[in-house]
Design a protein around this nucleic acid. Structure first.
Lengths: 250, 250
DNA sequence: ATCCAAACTTGATATGGATCAATATTCACT
DNA sequence: AGTGAATATTGATCCATATCAAGTTTGGAT
C-alpha cells in the first residue's frame, strides 16, 4: 500500500535514460509512433516522471485535477466509472503502450478512475508540455490527434457490442480483442492470462458475472477455448471470430 | 436529391462573409469557443466551404477518405455504423455547433456514415489546416483537444447507459440529453420536435422500436411527457431526472 | 382527393440473461 | 498449515425486453 517507491525519487539521469522513449520497446505503439529518432529525443524531455502503481492501487481518482496523461509502460490497469456505485461500470482495460486520461482534457478533471490490476508503471506527460512540443513537432501533434481519434473509434466498437450483440458475441469479441492486443505486443495471441475477474469482464461487457462464467464453460465445452481459472487458451480463433461477427449479418 | 446548390458555388466573398465564424451565432458552442475576435478571424480563413445536405442525403460514407471535419451549422444529422446491416447501430445525433468526423482522423478514412435527418448545412475544415493553424494559435489547438476529449466523455456516457441502465432509464437519459442540448442552443428545454424515428431512437439506445413506443406511451400515462407523434413536451423533468439516475443507486 | 408505404401503437407470447441460491476453489494472511 | 474472504462455478427460477402479429395513423407522390 506504500507509494514511496524508487521512481518517485527526484534523481533522474541514468535511471531516466534507461527508460527514455528512445530506448523503450513500446515506441512503436505508444506516443512516439512514427516520429524520427531526433523527435523522440524531444519527447523524452517532456516525460515528467515514471510512476509505479501497485496492484489494486489507484493511479487517479475521478474528480482529481487532470493536467497529464499517462502512458502505460508495464502492467495492466482498468478505468471505471465512479458514479455507478453498484456494478461500477468498467470503461476499459489498458495495457502497455496505451494512454490513460484522455477524457480529462476537456474539463481539466478526471471523469473516471484508473486502478492497477497488476503492478504497473506509467509515464506521465502534461497536456501543456504535449501541446507546446506539438506546435514544434507537427508529427507529434498529428500522432496525438490520432490517438484521441483512435480512442473514439474504440468507444464506438464498445457501443456496437453493448448495443446489439448477444452475451456470447460480446465475450467472443472481448477475447479476440485481448488476443490481438497481446499479439501486437509480441505475446502469444492464443494463450494468455486474464488480469481481471469474471465480474470485471461482466461489468465491461454489460453482463453479470454468472453469465460470463457460464459462457466460459460453454465455450470450453464447444472446444473453442481452454480455461483454467484465469489462464486462457484460444483453441479455435476462427470459430470465435465467426461467433463475434456472425449474427449481425443474418 | 440534387447536390448542385448555391453554397457549392465557388464564388465566395459576400456570401462567405455572411456565414463566417465571426458572425456565426454558434461561435460559443462550436470550434471558436474561447477564442479572441482576432483568432476567430484566422479560423474563418480555414473554413473551406459550406455544404448543404438535404434530408436523407449522406454527408459522408464509411470508407471515404477523411481529410476534414464538419461542423453542423444548421440542421440535424445522425451518424451510424455501416457494418451492422440489420439494425444499423446509430452512434449519435448531431445538432448545430457539433463536430462530425472526429473518428476519421486516426485512419484517414471515415468509419461511420453521416446522414441528414433534416435539411442541414455544415462547415468543412481540413485537419491539415486545423493542425497548421493550431500551431500558431494555442487557444485553437487547446479547443480542438477539448472537443476530442469531450467526445470521449460523451461516448463514456453512452457506454454507461447501454451497459447498465434499463429501457426506461435509457429513454429518460436520452430525452434529458436532447433537452439540455436544445436549451444550450437557446431553444426550449421542455418542448421540442424529435427529428428521428422510434426505430432510430431504439437503435441509439440499444432497444427495439416497439419498446421505445411503449415507453413513450407509458411516460405519457404517468404524466412525465406529452407526446404527439414527434412533438414532445417534457412536463415533469425532475421526475425524468429521477428515473434517469435512480436505480443505479439502489 | 386518393393511394401507398412508412411510421407508429398496442397486444400476445417467447426467451436470453438476470437474479437468487448453494457449493467449490483459491488466495492472502496469521 | 490453517482460516476466512474473495472468486468462481453451476443450478433453478423469474422478468425485462425481444419478437411476432395486427391494426392505425400519417405524409408524400400521383
Amino acid at each position: 500500500m506504500a507509494t514511496r517507491i524508487d521512481s518517485a525519487n527526484p534523481v533522474f539521469s541514468l535511471e531516466t535514460l534507461k527508460v527514455a522513449c528512445s530506448t523503450c520497446g513500446l515506441r512503436e505503439l505508444c506516443l512516439p509512433l512514427g516520429l524520427s529518432a531526433a523527435e523522440i529525443k524531444r519527447v523524452d524531455a517532456i516525460v515528467r516522471r515514471r510512476r509505479k502503481v501497485r496492484k489494486t492501487e489507484t493511479l487517479y481518482h475521478a474528480g482529481m485535477t487532470c493536467r497529464s496523461l499517462y502512458a502505460v509502460r508495464v502492467g495492466f490497469l482498468k478505468t471505471r466509472d465512479p458514479e455507478s456505485s453498484g456494478s461500477c461500470r468498467i470503461f476499459g482495460f489498458h495495457m502497455a503502450g496505451e494512454l490513460l486520461g484522455l477524457d480529462g482534457i476537456a474539463g481539466g478533471v478526471h471523469t473516471c478512475e484508473a486502478i492497477a490490476l497488476e503492478d504497473s508503471e506509467v509515464c506521465e506527460v502534461t497536456f501543456e508540455d504535449l501541446e507546446v512540443l506539438g506546435r514544434e513537432l507537427p508529427a507529434l501533434q498529428k500522432r496525438f490527434h490520432q490517438i484521441l481519434s483512435r480512442e473514439i473509434q474504440r468507444d464506438h466498437q464498445i457501443m456496437r457490442v453493448l448495443g446489439c450483440k448477444t452475451a456470447e458475441q460480446r465475450l467472443a469479441v472481448f477475447l479476440l480483442d485481448l488476443s490481438e492486443r497481446y499479439e501486437s505486443r509480441g505475446y502469444s495471441p492464443a494463450s494468455f492470462h486474464l488480469r481481471m475477474s469474471r465480474e470485471e469482464i461482466g461489468s465491461y461487457l454489460g453482463l453479470q458475472l454468472e453469465t460470463v462464467s457460464r459462457l466460459f464453460s460453454n465455450f470450453r465445452k464447444r472446444g473453442l477455448i481452454e480455461v483454467e481459472r484465469r489462464h486462457l487458451i484460444l483453441t479455435d480463433r476462427p470459430a470465435l471470430q465467426r461467433i463475434a461477427n456472425d449474427s449481425d449479418l443474418e
